[in-house]
Simulated assay, not measured.
Amino acid sequence: MRPVRVAMVCGAGDPTLDGVADYTRRLEVALREVDVHVSRVSVAPGRAGGWLGAVRGAARSVRRLAPDLVHVQFAPSAFRFSGRPGLLLPPLLPRSVPLVTTLHEYGSWAAPSWLPDRVWRRLERAARVDRESGRLVPGSELVLVTNDAHAAVVTERTGRRPLRVPVPANVDDHGAATGARRRFRRRLGLPADTVLLVFFGFVHPVKGVRYLLEALPRLRARHPALHLAVVGGFTSRALPEPQADAFRAELAGIAAAHGVGDAVTFTGYLPAPEVSEALHAADGAVLPFCEGVTTKSGALVAALAHGLPTAVTTAPAGDPDLVDGVTVAVIDRRRDAAAVARATDRLLSDPALRGRLARAGRLVATRRSWPGIAAAHRAAYERLLGVGDD
């Protein structure tokens, strides 16, 4: 197998605070196993030069590396919600080196936001500029997306068909199943017979945790031993520390106001082995995202990979792998505490349903392994470069 040398361009995010940074780190590790040699090139503005200086520095780094191709991991949050990196970078890269872009978020942002949709459509169809990624999508020989919904938007806007490469679990199974239920409950000071729900992931207003808290009184009326563990950090690239602290206090206040403060534990950020233990220990997971969940969520895939029956809101465009009563329990209304309570009660009250969802969810997650993702990247790189095995 011939080595492929890739300059991986990304924001300068901390993997513990940024999902795209964590994905990029894990992808680099997986790519080593298929003889793809990755050199990371971070783009972040310093005090001098701003974004222009940062992008010029990244382009110089790419030229020094002389890679076979450049691969940009793009999300608005990864570049601090600035449109400048996407506009500035492609023209500064070597024209002889193919450009690849993975779109981690797509379909809900524009920079500048005031430009009318009809103008964006003309620019995108002419392959001049993209409202979300600047010149990255028009300048890329290959565009990757993580889900069907993003693929549909890219095709509708540009006429191009991107390659779909799904997202694996963002937490590996650390084999904590044996004794996990007892250990995790002991850590939280809970009786062994507690019915434990978890929310897992970065805690942000768009994740709908407040509706889960508001649903707890109804759920505890049916399941008195119920406890909720909100597993995940509040501080992230999308929610800086001051806002994160305020949001955590707001959620604690909502729990107290609904008389369930003693039934909720906010764990904060946990290392991966402890998250794995929490997922093994729980009776069910609830992910009531305000815009719906798809399998581009590494947190959802992690829950499914651990065999954890999960209740989710679904995105307007849907997701073929998230089928009510087959792979997940669907919360039929977003931003609705009563709907969260109904779906979660159904999950907790039906052991047979939990068993079916656990088995089917594992199968969904199995199709999203890191070795499989690495192999898909390697194959895409080879097609683009016109190379293969020697």
Rank of each mutant, 00 (worst) to 15 (best):
M8W: 12
D14K: 03
A21G: 05
Y23D: 02
R32V: 00
V41M: 01
V43I: 15
G53D: 07
V55F: 08
R60T: 09
A66C: 10
L69Y: 00
L69F: 03
H71N: 09
S77W: 02
F81S: 14
G83C: 09
S96M: 04
S96N: 15
L99I: 09
G107P: 11
P112V: 08
R118G: 12
A126N: 14
A127L: 13
S133F: 03
L136Y: 03
G139L: 10
S140K: 02
S140Q: 03
V143C: 07
V145W: 01
A149D: 14
A151Q: 08
V154H: 07
T155C: 15
G159I: 09
P162I: 05
P162K: 05
V165G: 00
A177C: 10
T178L: 14
R182Q: 14
R187D: 14
G189K: 03
L197N: 13
F199R: 10
V206I: 11
L212I: 04
L212V: 04
L216T: 04
R218N: 02
R220S: 06
H223P: 07
L228P: 12
A229F: 11
G232E: 07
P240A: 09
P242S: 12
F247L: 10
G259M: 05
S276W: 01
L279Q: 08
D283M: 04
A285D: 11
P288C: 06
P288T: 12
C290I: 08
G292P: 13
K296V: 01
G307L: 04
T310W: 07
V312Q: 11
V312T: 10
A315I: 06
G318K: 10
P320R: 15
D321R: 14
R335G: 05
D336W: 06
D336G: 13
A337L: 07
A339T: 12
V340N: 08
R362A: 00
A365Y: 01
R367P: 01
R368I: 00
R368E: 00
S369A: 01
S369W: 00
I373D: 00
L384N: 09
V387D: 11
